[in-house]
Amino acid sequence: MRRLWFRDRRPGWPDLALAVLVGAAVGWSGITGMGPAGVDRRPFDLLAGALLLLMSASLLVRRRYPVPAAVVAIGTTFAWFGAGYYGRAVIAVPMIVCVTLTVVLGRWWGVAAGALTTASGIAVIQAVFDSPHAYDYSINAVLILTTSVAVGEAIRYYLAWRKEMLDRVARAERDRDAEAARLVNEERLRIAYEVHDVVAHTIASISVQAGVAAHVLDRRPEKAREALEAIKKTSTEALRELRGVVGALRSDGAEEHSPSLGRLPELTGMVEAAGVRARLSVTGEVSALPAAVELAAYRIVQEALTNVVRHAKASEVTIELSYRPDFLRITVEDDGTAAESPSGNGNGLAGMRERARTLGGRFDAGRVTTGFRVACELPR
């Protein structure tokens, strides 16, 4: 962001250009005799050149040293008039200084400089000019210096407004970057949960089926074949779901072929293939759910059943879906006897809780008298 010109008080090319321009205008009016009537005509000489250089120098450094520059500018201006040089353009020097004082130091500095300049100017005018012209020049001096303070105040308000706008833009950019980072983190977390659910469930099923195949390979080859077929089916399904997750990343849209609660019999079949009886119960009026709720419900049931197979040492698990007008209640309860929680402290339990929280639902998991229970309510 570029710094505002009046905030960086080091003299720059605008100050140099202004000093040269005003100095040239005052010098030209003095040399060519363009001046107010009633002044004793005095030609441009070395004293006029010295005063002109002081005026230009005060304009050059007026932002860095506003008060000394104002003193020099006002003093040299009145010295110019008092010496009797020509030059209507010289009044521009105290005007510019008053504007700068108001902008840099504040309104009251500009008012003080304007009042001092006006009072001193009137005194000089009364002493230098003829009576018929003194009154008119005094009125002009008051109007000119008042206008200078007003212009300085307007510029000061504009710079303050511009600074506020730039600060707001900067804050908006920071907020936008923070929001983008938050969305990226949430999406990364969502993908991590998706991959975890798919891989954990698949590995658990393959591990169980491989153990069964190894155990019955010699005595019951047909049972081993069934286990191997189940492994093939499970791995194929896992690859399809992973392709769906990756496809969603590539297309920047929703998952392709998102799992749904209609596929719960497949999950219960895999659990039963691992030697755990599964009972699925559905109550209430079954109706369509939002895609996000459908996916979250499926993943929660999938992760809960994966934990049953991997950790619970259970012989039976019950899955209950209760469709209510405002929410879907999910309960997965097993009769496991494992000493530890089926989910442990890993990502499984945290992932289920996070899915429910993201949708504004409730999640609870813990050991009960008969085993371990996962209960969740997702708003519809």
Results as ranks from 00 to 15, higher is better:
Ala214Tyr: 04
Asp130Arg: 04
Val199Asn: 05
Asn185Trp: 10
Val195Lys: 02
Ala180Leu: 14
Cys98Gln: 09
Asp197Ile: 00
Tyr135Trp: 11
Asp136Met: 08
Thr147Val: 11
Ala141Pro: 00
Phe81Gly: 07
Met95Leu: 14
Asp197Arg: 01
Asp167Ser: 08
Leu166Tyr: 00
Thr102Ala: 11
Thr117Met: 08
Trp108Gln: 03
Tyr157Gly: 08
Thr147Gly: 09
Thr202Cys: 11
Val103His: 06
Asp177Leu: 12
Ala178Pro: 06
Val198Glu: 12
Trp108Asp: 02
Leu183Trp: 09
Ala180Ile: 14
Ala210Phe: 06
Arg88Pro: 06
Ala180Arg: 13
Tyr85Ser: 03
Val111Leu: 07
Val128Leu: 03
Tyr137Phe: 08
Phe81Leu: 15
Gly152Ile: 12
Gly106Trp: 07
Ile125Glu: 09
Arg174Val: 03
Tyr193Ser: 12
Ala112Val: 07
Asp175Gly: 01
Val90His: 04
Val93Leu: 08
Arg107Val: 10
Glu194Ala: 06
Phe129Val: 06
Ala200Arg: 01
Val97Ile: 14
Glu173Phe: 03
Ala192Asn: 00
Phe81Asp: 11
Cys98Ser: 09
Thr147Met: 13
Pro94Ala: 07
Arg174Gln: 11
Ala178Lys: 10
Ala214Met: 13
Thr102Met: 04
Val216Asn: 03
Phe78Arg: 04
Phe129Lys: 00
Leu159Cys: 00
Asp167Thr: 07
Val104Cys: 07
Val99Thr: 07
Pro94Asn: 11
Ala112Glu: 10
Pro132Met: 12
Val103Trp: 02
Tyr86Met: 10
Val99Cys: 07
Pro132Asn: 09
Ala214Cys: 07
Gly82Thr: 15
Arg190Pro: 02
Phe129Gly: 00
Thr77Pro: 00
Ala170Gly: 08
Ser207Asp: 14
Ala115Trp: 04
Ala119Phe: 14
Asp177Met: 08
Val199Gln: 08
Ala178Ile: 11
Asn140Arg: 12
Tyr158Arg: 05
Ala127Met: 12
Gln209His: 03
His215Gly: 00
His201Gly: 09
Leu116Gly: 01
Ser120Leu: 15
Ile139Ser: 01
Tyr86Asp: 14
Gly87Glu: 14
Ala134His: 01
Pro132Val: 11
